[in-house]
Design a protein around this nucleic acid. Structure first.
Lengths: 249, 249
DNA sequence: ACGCGCCTTTCACTGAGTGGAAGGACTCTA
DNA sequence: TAGAGTCCTTCCACTCAGTGAAAGGCGCGT
């Protein structure tokens, strides 16, 4: 290299990937300088690399100078084996659940100390839902997250409890309180949230169990839990049992 | 560069992308030499670049030495704006269609002279279906494809008719015959295929029209069309009209 | 034993990649 | 109207990251 200060171990490839991975659910459109900042690259370098990524069909430059992920990368990304079997099996059960509850239905797995959303069926738009397929959220503030956390190895729990970020005024941030809840979730077989991630949204979630292992969490988002919590839990458990059985067999 | 013969205009970025784009629906797992061959790179070069792509989290090396697209790239790919509005609007209509027909339901758009599948709901597994979300197929051999071709600009039609690849013994390969069919499709408002893409699979498809423009095609795949073609066409048209209306408004 | 696929490592060469510096376009605030 | 703040773009001298032929290792079939 020439110029000056260059981060050691920074190859062209790793830099290009840093640029691609600068996009996330909250940043689907980025300007050049945002890209450079988020990827930790000098502006002229980012300028050239982004130009090549556009030429190569990985990014698209939109009117206004904003960059977005290109359709071609969408196609390649869809080839990744992301719990393919589980998702395929879960689809019809999720459809049923969606039909009977008319709520937003989620299928998610744990990835480190975050929930990774695998699948989503949108419900009535009146309930605000932040998660999208492929997005990650903290474990402690969502229904599916708490289920997954309740069934995670001890070191994950310790790790997650160490930093309970506040999202809304109702997010659980006291480790003791959450630990208590996780206990209850294991005992009752389901988790609930009340405006812990999004104001105006409540959720119920249950584990999907294949054999002994918790392989995923199934959840729904509703405006309120006051009325039919029991019915929702029952519907979820039926679906989760169906998925688990099909998945194990 | 050093070594020897290097393709001009081949930067590290473009080569890395060539490696990523070497994956497609028929090649979800590739060995190093396959990757090198498909990307047009010397083996040692591919070896190093692939290593960096793995280190960067874009690819994963599986036991057995095969590479697959990594979860991280899946996440980024999902951020691409691929007819997002259309897909969201179409989802509930597709669900209804799926429930009433129990068939595989497709939503697709045209990309050049190919169909690009945007969304799919799997039906009974007994009917073989080759398309997956994100995959592309030739326009002339699928139901959704023929619909899109029937409503495509003249130059696209000319282009597509020039090379009608045979897929099965029933694929239409005579331009005159296809042109005739396209005429009929425009007149009747729907297209059918009988084992033209996959043996044992038939399909029906209709255009999704917003205002005057055909923005997509909606189709289903069934084992046979002998019995209830009329019912299927009607169900498809209801759904397509619903999508089109919601999309335009 | 030999050949033929795979994958991996080495290494001398050099041009592709680098990024500070400079400049242009545009929008604010003074 | 000047000045300071964004943003993006281009230039260009320096040099090290990238290159790929060659060679070597491993496994398998014959």
């Amino acid at each position: 290299m020439a110029g000056n200060t260059s981060v050691p171990g920074a190859t062209v490839v790793s830099r290009s990937l840093a640029l691609l991975f600068a996009f996330d659910d909250a940043h689907r459109r980025l300007t050049l300088s945002e890209l450079a900042r988020r990827a930790g690259l000098p502006l002229p370098t980012a300028h050239r690399l982004v130009g090549e990524l556009v030429a190569g069909g990985a990014l698209v430059r939109r009117a206004g100078g904003e960059y977005v992920v290109a359709r071609r990368l969408w196609q390649v990304g869809l080839l990744a084996p992301v719990e393919t079997g589980l998702r395929e099996i879960a689809a019809p059960f999720m459809n049923d659940l969606h039909a009977t509850t008319r709520a937003t239905v989620h299928l998610a797995v744990r990835e480190g100390t975050e929930v990774l959303y695998l699948e989503r069926l949108s419900g009535r738009a009146s309930v605000p839902v932040v998660s999208t397929v492929g997005s990650r959220l903290p474990l402690h503030a969502t229904g599916v997250g708490k289920v997954l956390l309740a069934h995670a190895p001890a070191e994950v729990t310790t790790d997650a409890l160490a930093r309970l970020a506040r999202v809304t005024p109702y997010t659980i941030t006291r480790p003791g309180r959450l630990r208590e809840q996780l206990e209850r979730i294991r005992r009752d077989g389901y988790a609930t949230t009340v405006e812990e991630m999004t104001l105006g949204a409540c959720s119920v979630a249950v584990p999907v169990t294949a054999g002994e292992r918790v392989v995923a969490a199934l959840g729904i988002v509703v405006p309120s839990l006051k009325r039919d919590r029991g019915r929702l839990v029952a519907a979820l458990q039926v679906a989760a049992r169906g998925i688990g059985r099909s998945f194990a067999g």
